[in-house]
């Protein structure tokens, strides 16, 4: 069967290539790897680039996997095969800390890098409106209480909820359930608005069931899942002045000339109102650093040093240009001390 030789040889070559190469990868890594939230992604990449330009270390590689997916990768273990830094648009959960510990990731440093405000924006062609979390919940919940009983959301127009609102159809473009922005929107807008309504508590006495009712968004077309691409939402809003879009502050900031943000309980979305804690739909952003990798993967201390520097997250830092809402100075100092000492997170 000499005729088969080239065939066998060729396929064996392919197999051999992947087999021979394998042991060579169990070596160390000289490039920091970060994974996680798509909201923190623009900030971590900006720091990574500035860090890389110092020329002492390779530019870190940053992946945008979503907060949950990122923490899962981060918690998968210690060693060069696992990422060093996780970006998160919410605080790490107890279950995730346990998962980390089970895989040997026992110490990590938590750094709060600033805030992101969620904008409820519409085209500048539309009249400016003032909303509240309660109004938002009524507009977007799947079931709302009417005369003490939960019914499928009957509101079609904004004016059905409150006569002072415009007589236009409720249409909100927002992120899908996989997005961190959606998680935050659910918690900050939907849950908060729902909690303020005593009727819901009466209609659904069970706390767990109530939380689910509060966070379930209607599926009859009033809320449109517009994908993870926030730029697309911006474009759609420009085309449709009656629609509102839910997305991060940085997108609003970059598109101020075509978009305006609705007031929440009379408070406008600006960097000042968020840092002062007045604007409701704002969330803190975190990065988590694997302490066991400091000193093993080169540059981790220097990288978080750059991240927490005044040049990056200060009031005039380059992260502010990217849309980050900075923390007050005293808290920034505290974060810097955490970063320098790599103080482990106590959960």
């Amino acid at each position: 069967m000499t005729t088969r030789t080239p065939v066998v040889a060729a396929s064996a070559l392919g197999m051999a290539l992947s087999l021979v190469a394998a042991p060579a990868f169990a070596q160390s890594r000289d490039q920091i790897r970060a994974v996680g939230s798509s909201t923190v992604f623009p900030f971590t990449t900006a720091v990574a680039e500035a860090f890389g330009k110092t020329g002492k270390f390779k530019t870190p590689v940053v992946e945008s996997t979503g907060t949950g997916g990122g923490l899962k990768l981060f918690c998968a273990g210690v060693g060069p095969a696992h990422p060093d830094i996780a970006n998160a648009s919410r605080r790490i959960k107890k279950s995730e800390v346990d998962q980390c510990a089970a895989n040997g990731v026992t110490t990590m440093t938590e750094l709060k890098i600033g805030y992101d405000g969620i904008a409820l924006a519409s085209s500048r062609k539309a009249a400016p409106v003032s909303l509240s979390t309660v109004l938002l919940w009524k507009a977007l919940a799947k079931e709302v209480p009417v005369n003490g009983v939960l019914v499928a959301n009957p509101y079609k127009l904004w004016s059905d909820i409150d006569p002072s609102l415009p007589r236009t159809a409720i249409e909100v473009l927002g992120p899908p359930p996989t997005s961190g922005t959606r998680d935050t929107f659910n918690e900050l807008a939907m849950l908060e608005g729902c909690r303020k309504l005593a009727e819901v508590a009466k209609a659904v006495p069970n706390e767990k069931a109530r939380e689910r009712t509060c966070m379930t968004i209607r599926e009859d077309g009033a809320y449109v899942e517009a994908g993870e691409n926030d730029n697309l939402i911006v474009q759609k809003l420009t085309a449709n002045p009656n629609a509102f879009g839910v997305f991060g502050y940085s997108y609003l900031d970059q598109n101020r000339d075509s978009l305006q943000s609705a007031k929440m309980d009379g408070v406008e979305l600006t960097a000042e109102t968020v840092a002062a804690g007045k604007y409701e739909l704002a969330r803190p952003l975190y990065i988590y650093v694997k302490n066991a990798h400091a000193g093993v993967i080169p540059g981790i201390r220097e990288f978080i040093g750059e991240y927490t520097s005044e040049r990056a997250m200060g009031d005039d830092g380059y992260l502010v240009d990217k849309g980050l809402i900075p923390e007050p100075k005293a808290l920034r100092e505290a974060a810097r001390i955490l970063a320098v000492n790599l103080t482990p997170l106590q959960f």
């Binding site: 990574a48 680039e49 890389g52 530019t59 590689v61 940053v62 992946e63």
Partner: peptide, 8 residues
């Protein structure tokens, strides 16, 4: 992991 921010 090839969908990532890579400068170098």
């Amino acid at each position: 992991g090839m969908v990532a921010f890579i400068v170098d």
